[in-house]
Amino acid sequence: MSACTGIAATRSPARSPVRSRGRPSSPAGHAPLRLAALLAPAAAVFAAFFLLPLVRLIAIGAGGAEGWGAYLATLTDPGHLDSLVSTLALSAGVTVATLAIATVAGLFLVRHRFPGHALLVALLTFPLAFPGAVIGFMVIMLAGRQGLIGTVTQALTGGRLVFAYSMAGLFLGYVYFSIPRVILTVMAAAEKLDPRLEEAARSLGAPPWRVAADVILPALKPALISAGALCFATAMGAFGTAFTLATRINVLPMTIYTEFTLQANIAAAAALSVLLGLITWAALALARSAAGGSVAAAG
């Protein structure tokens, strides 16, 4: 709020020569004041629901027995560090796998029309509506103790393959719910590709893999970066699926939950939350600068 009035104050001397030329009542004359008035509700909401809670969270992180040292402890505590590293590795892996699957599938869906095409695209967006708990439940049905993969592997090899309650199960679930949003972004970008560019590359002798590497991927790059950043951020913060699969899975949101509810270590939970927020924010900011500011648009 005060910043807005500050702008109004610094602008007014610059306006005075205009006034002296005899155009005092131009509607643009009150623009800074009006702007400040119009921004006030948004600024109030921003302060009340984002700025203040965030400041409070940061303060709580430093409010424990260790003080500001709690923030350092998130990196020095072996348990926390381990949780951070495995969350980063999981999110990076999910992002790479999702981008690979969604790019191939998205390009295919844009370029080929077949009976049931529209229905398939609609079905692919289905997981968007599911809460994390439902995703977790589906992973258990697929790869859990009574799951499909377990039954099939037992029939075939005699051994039961069960991986739902581990990082592998979480990976599967995250890829499953990340694919829809990435595939939609890829399809939107692929629709806009100029087919002449590919024809030009082919006429110059480029085989299909070179056309993909030199023409298609560079053209899709901004969309892939923005979709990948969102995918990464979502995987970093997702909780429901992990919670459904097993309480022992060592990812950051689970660690925060455990510190908060079971250990009542509120300062550590807050410090970890701030760290999680910072990393995710940094990933999005990096992607935004790499993609040239189109990340927000793709969200």
Partner: peptide, 28 residues
């Protein structure tokens, strides 16, 4: 087309936007 060794020029130019002029010409 990639094995016919033809040159193509399009109405929409179809130059590679991620390459410089020299890189475009050098591509083939």
């Amino acid at each position: 087309i990639e094995r016919r060794n033809v040159g193509m020029v399009f109405q929409s130019y179809a130059l590679f936007p991620n390459m410089t002029v020299a890189e475009n010409v050098a591509y083939g």
